[in-house]
């Protein structure tokens, strides 16, 4: 974690990911252009650009939306999750090229303002079949602009994580609008079964992934655990936690991370103050619990970020009966010092 803001947060891994993203985008555009010129030679360059960038953005959006649930179902995909931001901004840029070229191609010929023309060239707003699909794409692009424009740690901090998260959850609205935009567009412009077919496969895949991952989480959240006579909850045996790692345990639908380090055990709330990252999936680095998402750190004994940082998370009390770990379900206020249990 750094104190100052940088233009783009790059490290060795992120640079590799970004090169892969760029290579994928260029490859896709080249293959798309090649196929178009082979099979549909009369296509104009403007139409080619509109279609190539439009389909590229849709594919990238599907990948972005798949990363979240896939990395919850299988933790080996987590590195993709940590590098999702640049993929999102690249997707917005591809969508913007598609939008701007469509606007030039279809709406700059008349003497009305092109944005006004998008909304008024087809006024069939009451029809389901002939609904002006370009309006849906326009609104989705505005949402994606809001998200891409605020994809920086400065905004995460200064808009506050909760406002930022709400803004970025608008991606689901954008997704719904884009699916309808492509569906109705394909429908009104060309009745190709491929477009509708690919779109349906993508839709079913994304929705299933999210629902499977979502219901899995509900199961974890509602798991009941064994209590002792003083209502403390049984977590696990000390041997089940690796050194410098944590066990994530659910207490009253909230998750607690129980860390084992230097022969001691400490429990803190699992949610990082920065962006809600899962602290229990992180490691202890230099004596601090380190969030796997952006490297925010907390001291295991009191849940406080080491100075000069001011983040604090709730702490929990633990006790050991032989090698069985028990946790007091009542959380202490954020940043409360709790003596670690020796094991």
């Amino acid at each position: 974690m750094g104190l100052d803001y940088q233009t783009i947060l790059w490290n060795k891994h992120k640079k590799v990911y970004d090169k892969l993203i760029l290579a994928f985008m260029l490859m896709y555009l080249l293959v798309f252009a090649g196929l178009t010129f082979t099979f549909n030679a009369q296509t104009t360059i403007e139409t080619l650009i509109i279609r190539a960038f439009g389909t590229l953005a849709v594919i990238m959006l599907h990948i972005i939306l798949a990363i979240g649930p896939i990395s919850r179902l299988n933790t080996s995909f987590l590195p993709l999750l940590y590098n999702r931001r640049h993929l999102g901004v690249s997707m917005f840029l591809a969508a913007a090229v598609h939008g701007v070229f469509s606007m030039i191609q279809f709406h700059t010929l008349g003497n009305v303002n092109p944005v006004y023309s998008i909304f008024t060239s087809n006024l069939d707003y009451t029809s389901l079949t002939n609904f002006p699909f370009q309006v849906l794409g326009f609104v989705a692009l505005i949402i994606l602009f809001f998200m891409a424009a605020t994809s920086h740690d400065f905004w995460l901090k200064n808009l506050s994580p909760s406002v930022w998260k709400k803004l970025h959850m608008m991606v689901y609205v954008a997704y719904a609008l884009i699916i309808l935009h492509v569906f109705l567009g394909a429908f009104q412009q060309e009745t190709s079964p491929f477009t509708i077919g690919f779109l349906s496969i993508g839709f079913v895949t994304i929705v299933s992934l999210h629902l499977i991952a979502g219901f899995n989480e509900v199961k974890t959240d509602t798991k009941k655990s064994e209590k002792d006579e003083s209502n403390w909850l049984y977590v696990c045996r000390t041997g089940e936690i690796e050194e410098d790692r944590a066990k994530i345990f659910t207490v009253d639908k909230e998750r607690v991370a129980i860390f084992k380090y230097e022969g001691k055990l400490s429990a803190i709330h699992n949610v990082c103050k920065h962006q809600g990252g899962p602290l229990g999936e992180g490691k202890i680095v230099d004596g601090c619990i380190t969030c796997p998402w952006h490297g925010y750190q907390y001291l295991p004994g009191n849940g406080q970020s080491p100075p000069p940082f001011t983040e604090k998370v709730a702490t929990y009390e633990l006790k050991l009966v032989k090698d069985k770990i028990y946790l007091n379900p009542e959380a202490f206020p954020e940043g409360t010092e709790v003596k670690p249990v020796n094991c």
Binding site: K165, M169, Y172, Y175, A176, V207, H210, L211, G214, F215, E217, V218, D221, K253, E254, R255, V271, G276, P278
Partner: peptide
């Protein structure tokens, strides 16, 4: 993520 946020995600997808 908090349980609230997890629930909101799930409801969004059921809606979609």
């Amino acid at each position: 993520m908090t349980s609230n946020l997890r629930r909101r995600h799930l409801f969004m997808w059921i809606g979609i």
